[in-house]
Design a protein around this nucleic acid. Structure first.
Lengths: 160, 160
DNA sequence: GGAATATATGTAGTTAACTACATATATTTG
DNA sequence: CAAATATATGTAGTTAACTACATATATTCC
């Protein structure tokens, strides 16, 4: 999209650019795991990594932790269960809860992945090491939106 | 997602954050148009704005201009045609081409939108006016990826 | 301690982008 | 100038997130 379109559309243009970059980044992630001969889908990462670190979690806490709506987590868990990378059991105290954990296969996979993370972290650092840091910029924008929403800011100008 | 997860997952975490921010931004856009009493979906913007500026375009050029794959553009055009905001005609020279333009209704809508853009631009500037500029950061990251892809960068570390 | 409320999980359907494929028309080239 | 290639449009199906709703179990509070 051209610069003048970005100026006029403002939000939407940025949103589109963010999405495109996000897609690009995700595809690259898949390629790196492939280069290491690891059969793994990047979208599985948040769930698997969280279970690797915290051993056992129920669906909602896991969703909160990775920042997805719970139905998204459920559908990831379904896939991962089919791949035999995780398993579930009932919480004996609160029987509404389904507790999820890595299987031995899951733990083994995460171990083979550890060295790849290092490569990813280094390559990411390289790319992010620009004048305006993307991660920091995202944090700052999120913070400024939290402080005062876009709509609230716009309303000030509308009233004028 | 927690900071340590971001560190380890690198790419994916950033991708997820970008997507979330993008969603947030899109929803806010809708609210602002609503506040002005304009019945309009933000996703229509790129197509309508481009046609407003360039008057007539065929499907592929339009897709390139707004940065979407052509089937996405076609489905937007279908909606806009149903809303009677655009119309199509055949290119008499190259009959493969479908030329798209705004209807009178479409042009009228865009005119009522012009003052809103100003508000959006101002509110956007306010939000983006942080230490690390998000737009610039995106540009820089895209540029550094273009120069050397993520995978190429990762390969250097793999070989070590 | 039972009724009202809150929480946890799950299902169904939506959305907005994508890729892969199919077809029609133009353009290039041997 | 016909065959091969390229371009333009369109359709079908996929993906990965979402919201809205349904149901079961816990918790709270008259």
């Amino acid at each position: 999209m051209e610069q003048n379109v970005i100026d006029a559309s403002g939000l939407l243009a940025i949103s589109t650019r963010l999405q495109r970059l996000s897609d690009q980044i995700r595809k690259d992630g898949l390629l790196i795991y492939k280069a290491f001969g690891i059969d793994f889908q990047p979208k599985w990462f948040p769930v698997l990594y969280t279970l690797y670190k915290k051993s056992t979690m129920n669906v909602v806490s896991l969703s909160d932790e990775i920042g997805y709506a719970h139905p998204s987590t459920i559908s990831l868990l379904k896939e991962l269960e089919k791949e035999k990378l995780i398993r579930s059991k009932k919480d004996k105290i609160d029987t509404r809860k389904r507790l999820v954990e890595l299987t031995e296969k899951g733990t083994a996979l995460l171990s083979t992945m550890e060295p790849v993370w290092d490569v990813i972290i280094k390559a990411t650092a390289e790319i992010m090491n620009t004048e305006n840091n993307l991660m920091k910029a995202i944090n700052e924008v999120e913070a400024s939106l939290k402080e005062k929403s876009f709509l609230q800011r716009a309303e000030v100008y509308i009233k004028k």
